[in-house]
Amino acid sequence: MEAAIEQESKTLRRGWTTGTCAAAASKAACLALLSGRFPSMVEVTLPGGQRPAFALAMEEMGEGYATAGIVKDAGDDPDVTHGALIMSRVQRGVPGSGIVFKAGLGVGTVTRPGLPLPPGEPAINPVPRKMIAQAIAEVAGSEYDFEVEISVADGEKIAEKTLNGRLGIMGGISILGTTGIVIPFSCAAWIHSIWRGIDVARAAGLIHIAGSTGSTSETAVELHHGLPEIALIDMGDFVGGMLKYLRDHPIPKVTIAGGVAKMTKLAQGMLDVHSKRGLADLDALARLAAEAGAGPDLVQRIAAANTVMEAFGIAHEDGLALGDRIAALAWQTAAKVLSDPLIALEILVFDREGRLIGRTEFTPSSHSGSLPGSDVI
């Protein structure tokens, strides 16, 4: 993410989603199955009407089937699937069956409810399915009964770097994409993964989830509450993106957990807590310390600290519960977004070692409700 923000002022090359690559490979394989020859290049139509062309990286023809492969180019995005070989094996299907999708090696299978596809289905999302169907229709016309098996070389290994396991997608990666285009360093993919995590938790009947800004706070909140993995949402810097989705898709108990710097930013009203979106204000932190009872010398030392972490260390050495103050104000920021008395909200603040240094109690997140921890305000 740091690299992403540093690249914002540069012109970055866009790439293609796994769904686009699967559609192109399927079209080439279907054409080969029907004509006996693979094309040198294959074009597909994206949801926005664009028609990129792709060269085939592999081709194979056998008795009653054809397989084509395309190497995914994610452009300048640090996508874990960049360079992956996306393959489609096409064969004729049962008359009247339409297009039947199957998960080959390296493509996951849905095992939990709450996702756009029901359990048991290959993890080929709805938009890529439409793109594949359209691509096949361009070469097959009204002949529309095919079995399409999508596979990804080393897909199961690649999936270990994704959230698929947590979402209940087992055996490989998902074939994704809503526009067909990968926009470098886009926030959309991460935010959509947050939403899908919430959907899965709701479908499983969970009444408590925890969104964390990083791995340390996630491990800490998991241990603190004894939560199952399915209840843990990797929200990263996108606190607002998680809260806004929960506002429309509520869960009774929500914990927001994070380190001191990001929770301080949330306390200061920032819903995107990435370091490049605005720095935590140490002068404001010093003023909060003064309101919490810090003397002039301590206030001055906090304001002069190099980092928020150092400021918290200074406060801790002096016996000041600055973490509780930050947690209470962070709760106020988050509660304004949720604004739902049926959602009880809790804030937990952890240090770098995962020690709890600030918290609020679960409190209904009505905008007009009382602020938790008001005794420290």
Rank of each mutant, 00 (worst) to 15 (best):
A4G: 15
L12A: 14
R13M: 12
W16Q: 08
A25R: 07
S26E: 04
K27A: 09
K27H: 04
L31N: 11
T45R: 13
T45W: 05
G48T: 07
F54L: 03
A57K: 05
I70D: 12
I70W: 09
D73E: 00
D79T: 10
T81Y: 07
L85S: 08
I86A: 00
S88I: 07
V90A: 02
R92L: 14
V94S: 11
G96F: 12
S97V: 04
S97K: 02
F101G: 03
K102V: 11
R112P: 03
L117E: 03
N125G: 04
P128S: 01
G141T: 02
Y144D: 15
D145T: 04
D145S: 12
E149S: 05
V152P: 05
E156N: 11
E156C: 12
K157D: 13
I158M: 02
K161N: 09
L163V: 14
L163C: 12
G168K: 00
G168A: 07
I175P: 07
C187R: 14
C187V: 13
A189E: 06
H192R: 10
H192L: 11
S193N: 03
R202F: 03
R202D: 01
A204P: 00
G205T: 08
H208G: 10
T219W: 07
G226W: 11
A231Y: 03
A231T: 02
L232R: 04
L232G: 10
I233H: 01
M235F: 09
F238C: 10
G241L: 05
M242N: 02
R247T: 06
D248M: 06
H249N: 15
I251G: 05
K253A: 13
V254N: 02
T255K: 00
A257W: 07
V260S: 09
A261T: 06
T264Q: 10
L271Q: 08
L279F: 08
D283F: 12
L285G: 03
L285M: 08
R287H: 13
R287W: 13
A289F: 08
A289Y: 06
A294M: 04
D297Q: 06
V299I: 08
A303N: 02
A305H: 03
A305I: 00
D318P: 01
L322S: 06
I326T: 05
L338R: 00
L338W: 02
L348W: 01
D351V: 10
R352F: 15
R352M: 15
T363H: 06
P364L: 02
P364S: 01
H367Y: 12
S370Y: 09
V376K: 00
